[in-house]
Amino acid sequence: MSALRGAVIGCGFFAQNHLKAWGDIAGAELVAVCDLDPAKAAAAAALTGAEAFTDVDAMLAAARPDFVDIATTMETHEPLVAKAAAAGADIICQKPFAPDIAGVRRILQTAEAAGIRLMVHENFRFQSPLIELRRAMPAIGEPFFAHIAWRTGYDVVAGQPYLAKVERFILLDLGIHVLDVARFLLGDVADLYARTQRTMPGARGEAQATMTLRHRSGAVCAVTCTYTNRIDPDPFPQTLAEIEGRDGTLRLERDYRLELHRPGSLEVRDIRPGVPSWADPQWALAQGSVLNTQQHFVDCLKSGAEFQTSGRDNLKTFALVEAAYASAASGQPVVPEA
């Protein structure tokens, strides 16, 4: 089978990782890059060798890609999905899918009506340390408790200044990843209780969220995230996790130290992610996961297998974000909608 022909829409800050990763993906090649800003489009074309466009309609008509990779901000996802679906292209779309769950549902309907395939670029569960953690779980027996923490003081607003202005801040930007990891590790969620705090001076939305989830399995999971933890060394961008089962405990500690505790034994493994050839070591974790995410997309397109983070699956993750905002507002636990 020949390589699938892809186009990247949106060539901003995080899209640089997508652009570089496409060069390493087996079975796909980039034929077009598109950004409203001609300079960004030209730079992306120079990086990838694909053709530059500043207009999506013109790009879809001229390049006729097999798939598009939408790496724009969430407000633009709905119209861009509609255009790509109308052109018959399969889609991988950055998270968060849409500003609210109604938008997510409309996007899914558009894709399903057009008969194209849609995956969300939900990349945390494609981080190799979290994949390793998931793989190690059979050793601890039935899990009953987990604690998943993403706590940093890294200045996220410096790279993405719009984040200071959004009403929905860390839950939608980062919490969505950690909640997806909770589903990845422990399955679907029966109900969720959340507290949010506006801890970042100058930011409009919540910069800290603390949640407990009851999973359908009966397991309980505490999910915590913050952008305002003053600590040294700062573990950014690592997700730390504890999972306790009837037979043992797994701990993903700082610096990718995976501990397996069982009565009478402690096994420790270094599960540091590999660094892609083009990656900056500080960003290797995220960049490696982008590579894994995009490879999964292409592999599933070719094999016909279901995406792990299909649009339909991601609706369940998004429902947790909505439940968290609703719970924080009402002060009561909320049953997620989806």
Binding site: I140, F145, R195, T210, A222, E244, G248, R262
Partner: peptide, 25 residues
Amino acid sequence: CVTILLDHAGGAVSLVDFSFFTKLE
């Protein structure tokens, strides 16, 4: 096994969690 979230008067949030069945070495 118990997992509690508290709001405090000063605005802080705390997670209080404890278990008698957690295997650690």
